[in-house]
Design a binder for these strands. Structure first.
Length: 155
DNA sequence: GCCAACGTTGGC
DNA sequence: GCCAACGTTGGC
């Protein structure tokens, strides 16, 4: 059964346009330093899984595109690099603490679907979507098949 | 820029 | 193992 996800990114740092212009339109999703998010990448994501690409911390937070998981999870090399922003001396190459997946651009949505719009629709299938809950900070979250179809229906 | 919510750290 | 302090996320 196909799995669905939502991944946040700050458009000022790395937006859909950046993903679409990468070689192979693919980017290693490095720098995740949250255990819940790590566990989802490492233990639950599979190549081919579909991803809502979400723009956070910007003027109009919104789901803006679709991407897909392009490979199996692998250790995040930036955790081992003392020069890297997300270097973690406690991540041992023999027993990596942090993982990443490769994310490939699929398409833009026909229109961006703003968070504010989703928050107005939380009576039904979106009730359990962490994105619309107050104070949510998860940068990677699961989306059910029902939620996926519902949101695509707003496109 | 403010601040609420949350995760992590570290003292005890 | 508790919990206060701290840092970060991210909407507004």
């Amino acid at each position: 059964m196909r799995r669905y996800w939502l991944m946040k990114s700050e458009p000022d740092t790395f937006g859909t346009e950046d993903l679409a212009s990468r070689p192979n339109q693919t980017e290693p999703w490095d720098g995740v330093r949250n255990y819940q998010a790590r566990n989802m990448m490492r233990d639950a994501m599979r190549p081919g899984d579909q991803v809502f690409f979400y723009h956070s911390n910007c003027e109009t937070p919104a789901i803006v595109g679709i991407a897909e998981i392009a490979g199996e999870a692998r250790p995040d090399p930036t955790a081992f690099d003392p020069e890297a922003k997300y270097f973690d001396p406690k991540s041992d190459p023999e027993n990596p603490r942090w993982y990443l997946v490769d994310v490939r651009y699929a398409r833009h949505l026909k229109r961006a679907i703003p968070l504010a719009e989703l928050k107005a629709l939380t009576d039904g299938v979106l009730a359990d979507l962490p994105l619309v809950r107050n104070g949510n900070r998860l940068s990677i979250m699961p989306v059910s098949a029902e939620q996926w179809e519902f949101i695509l229906g707003l496109e």
